Amino acid sequence: MILIADSGSTKTDWSLVDKGQLVQQVYTKGTNPFFQSEEEISTEIGEVLLPQLGNRTVEAVYFYGAGCGFPDKIALVTRAIAQHISAHIEVATDMLAAARGLCGHNPGIACILGTGSNSCYYNGKDIVDNVSPLGFILGDEGSGAVLGKLLVGDVLKNQTSPALKEKFLSEVNLTPGEIIDRVYRQPFPNRFLASLSPFLVANLHEPEIHELILNSFMAFFKRNVMQYDYRNNPVHIIGSVAYHYREILTEAAQKSGITLGTIIQSPMEGLIAYHQ
């Protein structure tokens, strides 16, 4: 029996698999070793994951996570898991999870559009080219965090209609000062900004909202995807933002001369097939 984890900054999807069949699925908080200590990650595994797994014996853990692209971070997450599960453990990036989940054993361009964004060229086994996403302050174009950042910036700088500004502040039930506090002083501002996505989804009919999202997706394609051989490869995309905004994403791809392949919300089904 193996345990496969797909972890973003917001949530972690753990799938217990036996001979290629899903046995159990468990969700815990997101894991990112850039923002969390080994102790915090270990506590989430010990207190939330393990009680739900019961007494099942796990032979291998394949953990794919945000922030797991550096040896020291891989070691940190490995130790946190090993404190609770005695098994073969492999830790890799969430980008590799997306590539394997989208492309399987075939080469292609794989992308993530969720709380954060990322992209790569994948040769069927490993990532061979990757444009650094740079996080939601310097990059992460098209991500939930950046869409939220752009929305808040437009609202607080009066770039939306007064009616839309009033509607936003009323629905999030926060003052401008409280929003600034959430972004600059409280932990995980990327999660807070991405949590504003439901407002964007509910107001896609507003021209200013449609334009904001379209321009951010086009920036994602220009600044990331167009650095790969996109003319000869379809672009596969995974993540909640890609899935819920797929009509505008398709429009942005057409305007950018990009051929889209698969758009799905989670890589887990593909990862289960890959590890079978």
Rank of each mutant, 00 (worst) to 15 (best):
V61E: 01
E47Q: 14
Q52T: 08
G54I: 03
I74N: 01
V48Y: 11
F70I: 15
G67T: 03
A80E: 01
E44C: 15
G65P: 02
V61L: 06
Y62L: 02
S42M: 12
F70G: 14
G67P: 04
E47L: 11
Q83R: 14
T78N: 08
L50K: 08
L50S: 10
N55V: 15
R79A: 14
P51V: 12
S42A: 14
G65W: 01
R56W: 12
P71H: 12
P51H: 09
G54A: 03
G65Y: 03
V58T: 09
H84P: 07
I85N: 01
L76A: 12
Y62D: 00
H88Q: 15
Y62T: 00
Q52W: 10
L50A: 04
I85D: 01
A80T: 07
H84R: 03
F63R: 03
D72N: 15
I81A: 05
I41W: 05
V48E: 13
E59V: 11
S86E: 06
I41S: 03
Q52R: 12
L76N: 05
Y62V: 03
V48W: 13
I85T: 03
I45D: 00
D72Q: 15
Q52D: 12
G65M: 07
L76C: 13
F63S: 05
S86R: 09
A82K: 08
K73T: 13
C68S: 10
R56L: 14
C68Y: 08
G46T: 02
E44T: 09
G69R: 15
E59H: 11
A60I: 01
F63I: 09
Q83S: 07
I74Q: 00
Q83W: 07
A60R: 06
G46L: 02
V48I: 14
T57G: 13
A80Q: 05
E44P: 06
I74L: 06
G67H: 04
G54C: 07
S86L: 11
E59I: 07
T43N: 14
L53P: 04
A66M: 09
H84Q: 12
G69V: 08
